[in-house]
Design a protein around this nucleic acid. Structure first.
Lengths: 210, 210
DNA sequence: AAAAAATCACCCTTAAGGGGGTATTTTTTA
DNA sequence: TAAAAAATACCCCCTTAAGGGTGATTTTTT
């Protein structure tokens, strides 16, 4: 058995105090080494490939290219890299956008260094670390409305409608007749107070019925 | 300042060893009390309201009504209760279904009791605890395809299409002409090799383009 | 036993969507 | 700074998948 090479960390964060603080603490209290720090993505983009980072700690509120937009660009430069977002924003949209664009973890800025170091370990082990409030937001975003006016079958059909299936496909998938699908659809429209597929999809998304 | 009343825990789990093991450990190593345990939802449904649990630890593979189906029913009986799923299944569908139906947290069965107790604390504090692998699965489910063939504008329009907006609404929302929306749509169809909105939505979902 | 949910059928009508072609302006990138 | 890519906008034509109305039987729940 031989010792693993240290994992390489890069920090992109515009606040110098936070940047250097985290860098110092990670270097001195963990088996990881901070190989570079940058105050912005634009400052990092031409050099970061040479740093060969395993993990990037990325702020969202950066001057120039913001963290969300930087995500896909970093992924393009370094397809294997894990990216942990660090931010003061914790709106649902920001969190979901970050995760949609390839972030591996998400923490708010008051996160103690110990937790962050644990998160680095987690992503390297294939996990997806998040602070509890972030996790809660993510879970809520997945939650369906428990007070749906629709029956089980109707919900099922609405679900298929929202993923773009037409009557024929739905009928085939559920082993029922097209006319039955039509009947259910009509009932769905009545209950949701709409009169088209498009509107139904909007209401479904809006009220989290599917 | 007076001390908080102990939080009340109920465990629903068919394996007697696991059920009693967790109950014992939670009772003896944490400030929480297990007020009842049941081997199934069906055994629990008529009594659990009287237990007044704050947190339910719920297994998925139960005899009779399974854990996923039990979720909305438990939520109906006890709207305020937090439910932590405990299971050997960790397929994406199972995890997402559980969270969609109102689970507050999700752990695999090999989770040490200490982590579970921490999870109880987390949900009571409004967090959304998950084991790292579960979190990873959730994050992956939110991830977009980084190699989309679509431009930014096209992705944006496809996104609006998938949430049921028609040409007119899209045009208004993006401050462009309906004809421009049509042009983009045509280009999207060409790139995705489809020739209808419905197909485009299916491909979009399938390839996680939105 | 009653109510709710799920199933199937027939008629009739149209708006929203889709195909083809062309062209200018703006932005990005090499 | 030249070339390429992306975004914008218009015109003509055409059809299908979707929606509305009405009625009825069977299965499942309560």
């Amino acid at each position: 058995m031989y010792s693993q090479p240290e994992s390489r960390i890069v920090i992109i964060e515009d606040d110098q105090t936070i940047r250097e603080g985290y860098a110092y603490l990670i270097n001195h209290t963990s088996p990881y080494q901070v190989v570079a720090t940058y105050p912005s993505f634009d400052a990092a983009k031409h050099k970061i490939s040479k740093d060969q980072p395993d993990v990037i700690i990325l702020d969202i509120q950066l001057p120039g290219t913001n963290g969300i937009d930087a995500l896909p660009l970093l992924k393009k430069l370094l397809p294997q890299v894990y990216i942990i977002m660090l931010t003061v924003y914790e709106t649902e949209k920001t969190i979901l956008d970050a995760l949609a664009n390839g972030a591996s973890g998400y923490f708010t800025k008051n996160t103690p260094t110990a937790k962050l170091i644990e998160a680095i370990k987690d992503v390297l082990n294939g996990g997806g670390p998040m602070s509890p409030d972030v996790a809660k937001t993510v879970i809520l975003s997945l939650q369906k409305n428990p007070d749906s006016p629709l029956t089980k079958r109707e919900t099922q059909i609405l679900e298929l409608i929202t993923i773009g299936k037409d009557r024929g496909q739905i009928a085939k998938e559920l082993f029922i007749e097209v006319e039955t699908v039509k009947t259910h659809t009509k009932n769905i429209y009545t209950k949701l107070n709409v009169n088209s597929k498009a509107e139904a999809i909007q209401v479904a998304k809006d009220k989290r019925l599917v």
